[in-house]
Design a protein around this nucleic acid. Structure first.
Lengths: 211, 211, 211, 211
DNA sequence: AATGAATGAGACTTCATTCAT
DNA sequence: TATGAATGAAGTCTCATTCAT
């Protein structure tokens, strides 16, 4: 479909490692879709195998146990979020703009990546009762907080944000607000109008951070 | 069915209805504790019966099915929240004070009712995948929003709050913030310091609502 | 079918406890038959349930796990052996006669209780690799050795057996011989002729124990 | 298939057949160790491949099926026993000495070859339920009996042993005793003291065989 | 009313076996 | 030759649910 295959090997066969890697990836993707659709406990390893186009037994074969597969899902979603956030945020820009970019990443995902957000919030709640997930979420929270705090500090450094705010508290507060908004939107998208929420939230930040 | 109620009995025996009601209540309480401890899917009807001091079969006998028991749990938690909120809020007071009282009810519960908050957030997330729970949560959200909006409107009416805010958006925003804060605290209480969060949140409200 | 039921209760219903006890017993019996037929690892809990006339799930329900069911089988067979041995042996008799009675119990069982012997020897070997079985077998060996040693000592006391034998070693030796004989007979009954073996063994005892 | 074997190669590469033979041997050895450790049913073909330093799939590739691998193990152990016995026994010696040498081979193995004895007794019991093993065990029993009987007959021929004993019965009896002793020792080495057992057994033979 | 015996569906997991590389 | 990817059957175990007592 893309690159021309090497001469004399019109359709190169995949190596074993490639086959395995692909299978693991496809199963993980399927598991993510299933978690979004059914939740952590209502899908089965067999579902994941079949949804990925493989046999019912393969997920257990590769991931060992359902708990391990769920851990992999949690880590996958954490990575998605962290990567997306870092991609949107550009540390060369000013602090406030980066803060808003981060918020927009989260809110825009409601339109573009509802599945991922659904899984993210499912895993966030799952962390309350499943220690392996709690580990991934702890790391996610750490990474998110660092990103937000560093944006605030950049804003302070360049004079956009007043010095005497509680950076740590504001970091938690911002993350809480966005997550809370998305959580409500996920449950009832029709009654949660995102643009005014985004506008209000950003207005709050500007007003309260003003030096 | 048979014996006439002993008129002279100095300590009247409880009626069947009373005993049934008590058993149902004890089982529901046990279910709440178990949901807090293990989540929605990891406890069994038999667990609930035994934790309540009854037999393994009684929860099914009274609640019919696990789904119905979970619905009862969801409704129980919704009622706890709504009642607690209304008890704290006093509509004769001014609007802003009531808003803060509502926030404090939620945040204070971290110290006094961790179990209930755990169940509340478990059910909130469960609503993403379990329609019967979604119903209770929809009602909870409606009731919460009404309470917050009416407090805001009261504040506008008495001049505490400027007229040109988006009441609906602010209502969602406030609920989002508090829920987001509590959600983070539930996962990692040691790294989420509530008092400064409360202070920052209330400072935000005062500053942004100021006419 | 047999005894007349109590008046006014032509066919008394069994209590729950009776039902349960009977079910457990029937499942255990079925498991014993299946171990004899297929070995410890080749039968399933479902097999045991169905062979007992119940559902496939009941053995797990009552015995918890296959390992626990096998432990119950091991203990059942130990008890069968110990009881049978004690029934044959009469401590009021002289020592040598009791020794021979014990040997005869074992050898006669080849004709009357092949199934039990098969299970016994299956469990004896299973003890090599399954610690829970080893526990039952350790107890069986202890009880067997005690019975044999006390018979030998009785024989010494009444002058049938010379004083200077190594009681402990002879106890192990006698048990070893009988078990070894039965083990060979179980594998190939047609080529192991029991009567001459019994005769030779008893002749050995008499000759070597003679004062 | 392609290259010609390098004639001048100073250190000839092993042939495919040699490599295959070595791999098969290593896998068989690994299987023996695993049977000793876990029993016949609790180890997997993949275990055997990895324990031998090869891939998980090689045992199936070479032995075809697990049943076939177990048959190979059974035959391997039979051969070990027969060879060891014949090495110890020297038909040029007198009969009784050979009998004792055979017994010593078995008992000495408790100190030197516990693994092999463990496998031997595991396979002996396995023969009760697995026809392919029964075949190897039948042959082992035949060979053992022949060896013992021929020693007894030699003893009779040279006047060490009285003529009127039941050679067949004594052969089974001796094999039974030794196997029974080793079986008890395998389960509980600390409570089975071999030297006095050996002494008593040999004393029995001498006394009962005396013309 | 309340117990708990019994069922049976279904989840997880293991593993012998087949097959592509 | 040798690896290991992939399958699919089967076993263990759990538990919501039904039903006898």
């Amino acid at each position: 479909m893309t690159a021309v295959a090497p001469v004399a090997s019109p359709r190169r066969r995949r190596t074993q490692a490639e086959r395995r890697e692909e299978a693991e990836r496809l199963i993980l993707d399927a598991a993510v879709r299933l978690v979004a659709e059914k939740g952590l406990d209502e899908f089965t390893l067999a579902d994941a195998g079949e949804a990925a186009g493989y046999s019912r037994g393969l997920p257990a074969h590769y991931f060992g146990s359902k708990a391990d597969l769920l851990s992999a899902v949690a880590d996958h979603i954490r990575e998605w979020f962290s990567t997306g956030l870092r991609t949107r945020v550009d540390r060369r820009r000013r602090g406030l703009a980066n803060l808003i970019a981060g918020i927009d990443f989260y809110i825009d995902a409601c339109g573009t990546d509802r599945t991922m957000l659904l899984v993210l919030h499912t895993v966030l709640a799952g962390a309350l009762h499943k220690p392996p997930l709690a580990q991934a979420i702890a790391r996610l929270n750490r990474e998110s907080a660092e990103e937000i705090e560093s944006a605030i500090r950049a804003g302070i450094a360049n004079g956009e944000i007043r010095r005497n705010i509680d950076v740590r508290a504001w970091s938690v507060l911002i993350l809480s607000s966005v997550r809370g908004i998305v959580a409500q939107w996920l449950v009832d998208p029709d009654h949660v109008d995102l643009p005014p929420l985004r506008a209000s939230l950003i207005a709050v930040l500007k007003r309260n951070f003003a030096p």
